[in-house]
Amino acid sequence: MSKDELYQQLKLQVSALISTEHDMVANMANISALLFEFLPDINWVGFYRSIEDELVLGPFQGKVACIRIPLGKGVCGTAASEGKTQRIADVHQFSGHIACDAASNSEIVIPVYHQEKVIAVLDIDSPINDRFDAEDQRGLESLVNVFEQTLHLEQQAI
């Protein structure tokens, strides 16, 4: 199966899993589990939620993780503060990298938006250098977009 086919299939699965559930944390948990199960060559996947001036660990799959990350620090904090995806081929070359797991060598972090504000980031780590390419970025951003659409439904349900 090609990467494009994999991400199309994952997008359908994410949509089916979360389309009728409006709890953000529950949806983060299922998205993390799905990606951890089906993405090859990753060792951690999960969400950090933006709370005040830092990112706070949310649902994830993998080894124990850093609990709090200041905005603008590390790959996750940079993605949140700049509001754009960070795709890092070698995290050890990233200035200010926060090493929660020394086995991680590459990383991709996608901001999650609600009402034009970054409310979380999806963080995925790999033990393989340069694991994530532009196709991974497009595919993961499309999955995050499906998740963002449920956030609008959550707001309407309140």
Rank of each mutant, 00 (worst) to 15 (best):
S19P: 00
S19L: 07
T20R: 14
E21P: 01
H22N: 15
H22Y: 15
H22A: 11
D23P: 03
M24S: 14
M24G: 00
M24T: 13
V25T: 14
V25S: 12
V25R: 14
V25I: 15
A26Q: 15
A26L: 15
A26E: 15
N27T: 08
M28W: 06
M28E: 09
M28L: 02
M28P: 04
A29E: 12
N30A: 12
I31L: 12
I31D: 03
S32V: 06
S32G: 01
S32F: 01
A33I: 10
L34M: 02
F36W: 09
F36C: 05
E37W: 00
E37L: 05
E37N: 10
E37F: 00
E37K: 10
F38H: 15
F38E: 15
L39G: 02
L39T: 04
P40Y: 01
D41S: 15
D41F: 09
N43K: 07
W44L: 09
F47I: 08
Y48E: 11
R49F: 11
R49E: 11
S50W: 04
S50P: 00
S50A: 15
I51W: 05
I51K: 14
E52I: 06
E52N: 14
E52S: 12
E52F: 07
D53R: 08
D53M: 06
E54M: 14
E54N: 14
L55A: 08
F60T: 04
Q61M: 13
K63L: 12
V64Y: 09
V64W: 03
V64K: 15
A65D: 04
A65V: 04
A65R: 10
C66N: 09
C66H: 01
I69P: 00
L71Y: 01
G72I: 07
K73N: 11
G74M: 05
G74Y: 02
V75M: 05
C76K: 02
G77Y: 03
G77P: 04
G77L: 03
T78G: 01
T78F: 03
T78C: 07
A80V: 08
A80F: 05
G83A: 03
G83K: 03
K84M: 13
K84S: 11
K84A: 10
T85G: 03
T85P: 02
R87P: 00
I88P: 00
I88R: 05
A89S: 11
A89V: 09
A89Y: 02
D90Y: 06
D90I: 04
V91W: 00
V91S: 01
V91G: 03
V91M: 01
V91N: 02
H92P: 00
S95R: 11
G96R: 09
G96H: 06
H97L: 09
H97N: 12
I98W: 12
I98H: 07
I98K: 11
A99S: 15
A99H: 06
C100I: 08
C100H: 07
D101V: 08
A102W: 01
A102L: 13
A102N: 13
A103K: 14
S104T: 15
N105K: 15
N105W: 06
N105I: 04
S106W: 10
S106K: 07
E107Y: 06
I108F: 08
I108V: 12
V109K: 05
I110T: 13
